[in-house]
């Protein structure tokens, strides 16, 4: 009798076989995710080194008078896209976030703005591409241009900037504002001197996240910014007029190399390696900024 009790008691922990199986499944799934990521990165690094050379990085791709494989033109185009997009989207996004947190009263308009921002982040990039190609064609009358691509991307990254900035503004302590208002500062002055400076790293995070999205974007750009890979800058005026010409980003060039296949496949991997390193740097930068924010807030 006594022995029987002991066998059934909690002292002897009963292990359920289904628990063990489920636990193994959970571990396998997580291991799979890590293995996938690592495998992808290692594969790109190994295959990407084959076509990598100084020539590849320092010349644009062209096919006349001889076939040359390079990504400099695409790197420059990508830089153009990043700079213009951020110049357009950051002020608007930050402004919208300020409106939502500082000015707007909880009501219909705020709800609509928040819903539409949510909607914008759910629209796939190919729809942005189609929209951008028609809408900005009506304005600029150019089929493909870097400006068209950048403006399309500005709409695309808007939700990221609005949301991240909004979160950052919300963490500014109410005491700061009360202090400023109590001293008689008008609202805009309070925002400019108190709110914005204390959430500047939040804004920076949103900008870095958006840059990551721009660098990795492809579907929205094929229809809007086009596929050209020449540099075409010979005078200072060209730096500005280039905005209205076609320009393929790194991702678009990678897609073209991959699509043609054959001998060009290794350049697809080299482009992928350049992209991957860029994305890694952006990721690390975003982390560092977020980390410094946390440290500052204690």
């Amino acid at each position: 009798m006594a022995a029987n009790v002991k066998e059934n008691s909690l002292c002897k922990k009963h292990r359920r076989p289904s628990d063990i199986i489920l636990q193994i499944v959970i571990y396998i799934c997580s291991a799979l995710v890590v293995a996938l990521t690592l495998g992808m990165i290692i594969f790109i690094v190994i295959r990407g080194c084959e076509g990598m050379s100084w020539n590849f990085l320092s010349t644009p791709a062209f096919s006349y008078p001889y076939e040359n494989y390079g990504v400099l033109g695409n790197i420059i185009n990508t830089l153009y896209l990043v700079v213009i997009t951020m110049l357009v989207a950051t002020p608007i996004g930050v402004g919208a976030a300020i409106y939502l947190t500082e000015y707007a009263k909880q009501g219909r308009l705020t709800q609509i703005i928040e819903f539409t921002t949510e909607t914008l982040s759910g629209i796939p990039s190919i729809i942005y591409g189609l929209f951008g190609s028609v809408f900005f064609y009506n304005i600029f009358k150019v089929n493909y241009s870097i400006l068209t691509g950048a403006l399309t991307l500005s709409i695309m990254v808007l939700p990221t900037i609005v949301r991240t900035t909004q979160e950052a503004i919300k963490t500014v302590p109410a005491g700061y504002r009360e202090g400023s208002i109590g001293l008689g500062a008008p609202k805009w002055h309070m925002i400019r001197t108190v709110v914005l400076p204390s959430c500047i790293d939040g804004i920076l995070t949103s900008v870095i996240l958006s840059i990551g999205r721009i660098v990795g974007e492809s579907a929205a750009l094929i229809f809007t910014a086009g596929i050209a890979s020449e540099i075409n800058i010979s005078s200072i005026g060209d730096i500005f007029s280039k905005v209205m010409t076609q320009g393929g980003s790194l991702t678009v060039q990678l897609y073209q190399y991959a699509q043609r296949g054959g001998a060009e496949l290794k350049y697809a991997f080299s482009t992928a390696l350049v992209l991957l390193i860029t994305v890694l740097i952006i990721n690390i930068a975003a982390k560092l900024v977020a980390h410094s924010v946390r440290k500052k807030r204690g």
């Binding site: 995710v33 890590v34 996938l36 990521t37 690592l38 992808m40 990165i41 594969f43 790109i44 295959r47 990551g212 660098v215 990795g216 974007e217 492809s218 579907a219 991702t251 990678l254 897609y255 991959a258 496949l265 697809a268 991997f269 992928a272 992209l275 991957l276 994305v279 890694l280 952006i282 990721n283």
Partner: peptide, 21 residues
């Protein structure tokens, strides 16, 4: 971090790897 990286990899690279692997 592996999950974060997975999210950061551009979709064309997924396409390239998918077609190769």
């Amino acid at each position: 971090p592996a999950v974060e990286l997975l999210a950061a990899i551009p979709s064309v690279i997924y396409g390239l790897l998918g077609s190769m692997l």
